[in-house]
Nucleic acid binder design. Structure first.
Length: 563
RNA sequence: UAGGGCGUAGCCAAGCGGAAAGGCAGCGGCCUUUGGAGCCGCCAUUCGGAGGUUCGAAUCCUCCCGCCCUAACCA
């Protein structure tokens, strides 16, 4: 751990420890709802909770907040576990809020007996109206005081009877709720007699049809934390206004521990969306190929794209933990990926847009194996042999018949180095029937074998190449921002966020690579020299390896071109 | 409107009364068998604004401005 930085939450934990709170214990948890796959924003949440537990010698648990059976599925609990493990996170236990349903039910009866909760017959619309929901008149938004439900003063006995019958299934869905009796004039709307239970006949992914009443988030969350012995309950800013209620419920109950809720600002990234709601629309609307589409900020998408767990962790750590809600530049994420990938990726040559190059003075039918360095950043990675012959492929963009002044690559009459091979000089070109460039013809200097000229002469460019007869076919999927704008959810007029989708987020090329790529396994990573970092996609089949471009390499020439 | 939050460079972010860290991006240069990587340099006379307290304020006080969140029987 090179994480010497701190943040306001760690400061709080440190202070609690100094004051001897919680008997010197630290316990955190991460409580996802299993209603979709998780993304980097979630990673920030569990990396924080996990990191705190690690750093203070505490316990970290994973708890599924599965209190809404209509949205949750086993598929997502499995997926979430898999994604967290991939990112390198571990926990002591996996818990489910649904395992606490019986305890929660008993505690609800405790509140009813104490006159702190009542069964309400108001409909959802009426509850909203009585609560004092904001109304807009003449552009003025008013938040009226709430008014008491007509059922608020039922006796504890009547409430207990009704609540038990709710559980027994005597009433139709939505006909009644159990509500906490707090204060309908409270300035915080969450305190205006919040709903604790609703009647809902839906099959729960773990409880089946055992229940027809389900606790709400507010009634389940703090109590679940207390049951588990959580000391520091972190969540995003969206729950800030729920904290008084979180505390109120715990105040009413005979809980042994008092968790403390602390909120932080969520992570947002430019050029993408970061909420399950929007990600789901992209997936279900067919705008991307699935939850693991490499363009998505989902952990599965990032894994498939080739992002490294370490790079993601470094990135999340670098963005810090504060209460401000900023939007981080995706370039920062890419920076940490390149940093990690540069250190660890084996280099290989692959041509993404091939054009044939023939070395006219190289003997026909001959070939030789040349030494190539696997990773200049890591001598331990060693070297490999790569085949060279008379007919090669080079990158089409590495040749220009009429080069501008800053173009250092190949052009008629000019000499360049073929990486690890020889200096070659372009003598002429061959055109096809339509006059299009079909082949580049060169001569090579046998004395420059390996790439150095004994006479000390220099070239301004080194090109990657691949031997035509030995190369393997490959498909390269090049990704760009999913959205054209930094914040796609910001739209004007008739436009919708989907209008901000980029038409260039995926470009497919068919290229050729060094023969060693033939045996590449899914998720294996490489750097294609001068082109970027690539990761083998599971779509690969025998004879056709598919690569996802994780990130490009900085390209100074392209940059001067763009400017 | 009420309640809750947040405002330090293009982005993220340190800083907590002694006088603006760092990273990303950007811009120059060096180096280079990846125009990669690396290395060097530049990039806030000023911290949303205005007052005040103080020898001294991004840090304390007052007022103002802006932005975000909530107003589900979702989490």
């Amino acid at each position: 751990m090179n994480q010497t930085t701190t943040d306001f939450i760690r400061d709080m934990v440190r202070e609690d420890l100094r004051l001897g709170k919680n008997n010197g214990k630290v316990q955190t948890r991460w409580p996802p709802e299993p209603n979709g796959y998780i993304h980097v924003g979630h990673a920030k949440g569990f990396l924080l909770a996990y990191g705190i537990a690690q750093e203070f010698g505490g316990v970290f648990n994973l708890r599924f907040d599965d209190t809404n059976p209509t949205k949750e599925e086993q598929e997502y609990v499995d997926g979430i576990i898999e994604d967290m493990r991939w990112l390198g996170v571990d926990w002591r236990d996996v818990y489910f809020a649904s395992d606490y349903f019986e305890q929660l039910y008993e505690w609800a009866e405790v509140l009813i007996r104490a006159g702190k909760a009542f069964v309400c017959d108001l409909s959802a619309e009426e509850v909203s109206e009585y609560r004092g929901t904001a109304v807009e008149t003449d552009g003025q938004v008013i938040t009226p005081r709430g008014k008491d439900s007509p059922y608020r003063n039922r006796s504890p006995e009547e409430n207990l009877d009704l609540f038990r019958r709710m559980r027994a299934g005597e009433f139709p869905d939505g006909s009644r709720t159990l509500r906490a009796k707090i204060d309908m004039a409270h300035p915080n709307l969450n305190m205006r007699d919040p709903v604790m239970y609703r009647i809902l006949r839906a099959t729960h992914h773990r409880q089946g049809d055992a229940w027809c009443i389900y606790p709400t988030y507010d009634w389940a969350h703090g109590q679940s934390d207390a049951i588990e012995g959580v000391t520091h309950s972190t969540c995003d800013l969206g729950f800030e206004n729920h904290r008084p209620l979180y505390d109120w419920f715990l105040d009413q109950l005979p809980v042994r521990t008092r968790p403390r809720q602390i909120e932080y600002g969520r992570l947002n990234l430019t050029h993408t969306v970061m909420s399950k709601r929007w990600l789901r629309q992209l997936v279900e609307g067919g705008y991307v190929e699935g939850w693991d589409d490499p363009r998505l900020p989902t952990l599965r998408g990032m894994r498939r794209r080739g992002y490294t767990p370490a790079g993601i962790r470094e990135f999340v750590h670098a963005t810090g933990v504060t209460k401000s809600q900023g939007m981080v530049d995706t370039a920062l994420l890419e920076h940490f990926q390149r940093q990690e990938l540069n250190r660890t990726s084996p280099r290989v040559m692959a041509v993404l847009d091939p054009i044939r190059l023939v070395i006219t003075n190289y003997p026909e039918g001959e070939m030789e194996w040349l030494d190539a360095v696997n990773n200049p950043e890591d001598p331990a990675a060693g070297t490999r042999k790569t085949p060279f012959s008379r007919e090669l492929y080079i990158e089409r963009e590495d040749f220009l018949e009429d080069p501008p002044s800053k173009f250092f690559r190949l052009s008629p009459g000019r000499e360049v180095r073929l990486r690890y091979a020889y200096f070659v000089r372009c003598t002429d070109v061959v055109r096809d029937a339509r006059g299009e460039l079909a082949e580049i013809r060169c001569t090579y200097d046998p004395a420059t074998r390996g790439g150095d000229a004994p006479d000390g002469r220099k070239v301004k460019a080194t090109l990657h190449w691949v031997s035509a007869a030995h190369a393997v076919d490959l498909e390269a999927r090049l990704y760009d921002h999913l959205f054209v704008t930094e914040d796609p959810t910001q739209v004007e007029g008739e436009r919708t966020w989907l209008d901000n989708l980029s038409p260039n987020s995926l470009v497919i090329c068919h290229g050729r690579g060094e023969p060693c790529l033939r045996d590449a396994k899914p998720f294996e990573r490489f750097q294609f020299e001068r082109k970027g970092y690539f990761c083998v996609d599971p779509d690969s089949a025998a004879g056709r390896v598919v690569f996802n471009r994780t990130a490009g390499l900085r390209d100074a020439w392209a940059k001067t071109q763009g400017a």
